[in-house]
């Protein structure tokens, strides 16, 4: 799981263009959206949905499920490990 978390962090930094950040700067359990943690917004959510589909073959059609999946990098990694098709 830790390997997948680090992989996801690298992909998030790349796709969201988080210049100057390294995987170590991202707390695996911190909220990704809202005022704390990475403080991502709705456009970032769209980028993450594209990332999941492109890199792991996961289609996230349910917006409510997305809220749970994108709570933190750890919840994202758990969802990916259970549902990945590639």
């Amino acid at each position: 799981m830790e390997e997948l978390i680090t992989e996801l962090k690298k992909e998030i930094i790349d796709v969201l263009n988080l210049e100057g950040m390294t995987p170590d700067d991202i707390d695996s359990d911190a909220p990704m959206f809202g005022d704390e943690g990475l403080a991502l917004d709705s456009i970032d959510a769209l980028e993450l949905i594209v990332l999941l589909e492109k890199n792991y073959g996961i289609k996230l059609a349910n917006a409510a499920a997305g809220k749970e999946v994108f709570k933190s990098v750890r919840t994202m990694a758990e969802y990916v490990s259970k549902n990945r098709t590639k």
Binding site: V15, I43, L46, E47, V50, E53, K54
Partner: peptide, 13 residues
């Protein structure tokens, strides 16, 4: 390259 799939919203915007 992606066959009109996986289009990133930022580039579109």
């Amino acid at each position: 390259n992606e066959g009109e799939q996986f289009l990133q919203p930022t580039f579109f915007m």
